[in-house]
């Protein structure tokens, strides 16, 4: 068929293209807005424990390539919510989301390969996805990689790398990483010994409510080891750690109390009462 041409047809063609573009835009807006609204509706259903509805809402979004919906769908399958528990399907959705650049899905996928859930364990793939997530700044992946390098588990044993990853995770607010970083500075593992840095990171973990770190920083506060000596603060941490059920803390608390005046003890108790854990963004 011969193509119709001539100036008048050009105008018509151009006009129709403008219309077409307009339609396309309207179509995209209309369809992406409900998609956005749908995603939240799915979340509301999820929070009410109505997983079947959440699944119904997220499924088409996931099919269209929405990485958030893909992550959440994977969670529903992994945990068996609103659907039969099915690790293979979890892996399928997390793989799609991970390839879409979703850091949480990359982390979860790495963990599936590591634990061998739904797939035979595959440490190479596990490490690959954990590294991808870690490079995107997922603190939990950074911490796991750090521990793995420290132990030489599934990756080369390398204290320096262990230190670098654990430091990143600590900076992200993972309290176990903060505690571990404290130990690395204390022992000179992967980094030069530094008592001040050690005390700083033990304190960070303590402030998040990690009882083991609270007990540890207390000892340093009594001795003035890397941190200014302060018996009242030390007692405060021991009271908190002991309340959290940390074994040695109660014993240490009794010993320290005997070396302090009643007034000092009351000050520490008051500080402990007023203390609130710092929430880290994760």
């Amino acid at each position: 068929m011969r193509e119709i041409s001539g100036p008048i047809f050009d105008v018509i063609r151009r006009t129709s293209m403008v219309f077409a573009t307009g339609f396309l835009a309207a179509f995209v807006i209309l369809h992406s807005f409900p998609a956005f609204a749908d995603f939240s509706a799915g979340w509301r259903a999820y929070q009410q424990g109505d997983f079947a509805t959440a699944l119904k809402i997220w499924q088409p979004l996931a099919d269209k390539g929405d990485a958030r919906a893909q992550l959440n769908l994977g969670v529903l399958y992994d945990e068996g919510r609103g659907v039969a528990q099915d690790a293979n399907n979890a892996i399928k959705w997390w793989t799609l989301a991970a390839e879409n650049g979703n850091g949480e899905a990359q982390h979860n996928l790495g963990m599936m390969y590591l634990t061998g859930r739904g797939v035979p364990p595959d440490y190479k793939l596990a490490v690959k996805w954990l590294e991808r997530a870690a490079l995107q700044g997922i603190g939990r992946s950074q911490y796991s990689l750090g521990k793995m390098h420290g132990e030489g588990l599934w990756v080369k044993k390398d204290q320096r790398q262990a230190f670098e990853w654990i430091k990143k995770a600590a900076q992200k607010g993972i309290y176990q990483a903060q505690y571990n970083l404290g130990k690395m500075y204390r022992d000179g593992a992967g980094v030069e010994k530094n008592h001040e840095a050690a005390a700083y990171w033990f304190l960070m973990a303590a402030q998040q409510g990690y009882a083991k770190a609270q007990n540890h920083i207390a000892t340093r506060l009594v001795r003035g080891d890397g941190i200014k000596q302060d018996k009242i603060e030390a007692l405060k941490w021991l009271i908190l750690a002991s309340k959290a059920g940390y074994d040695n803390a109660e014993h240490n608390r009794q010993i320290l109390s005997r070396r302090m005046s009643v007034k000092e003890q009351e000050q520490a108790e008051d500080l402990a009462r007023k203390w609130k854990p710092q929430q880290a963004p994760q």
Partner: peptide
């Protein structure tokens, strides 16, 4: 580490 892997998976996200 495998236990850590099991407890560190992310759950569903709001956004």
């Amino acid at each position: 580490e495998i236990l850590r892997a099991q407890v560190s998976k992310f759950s569903a996200k709001a956004t």
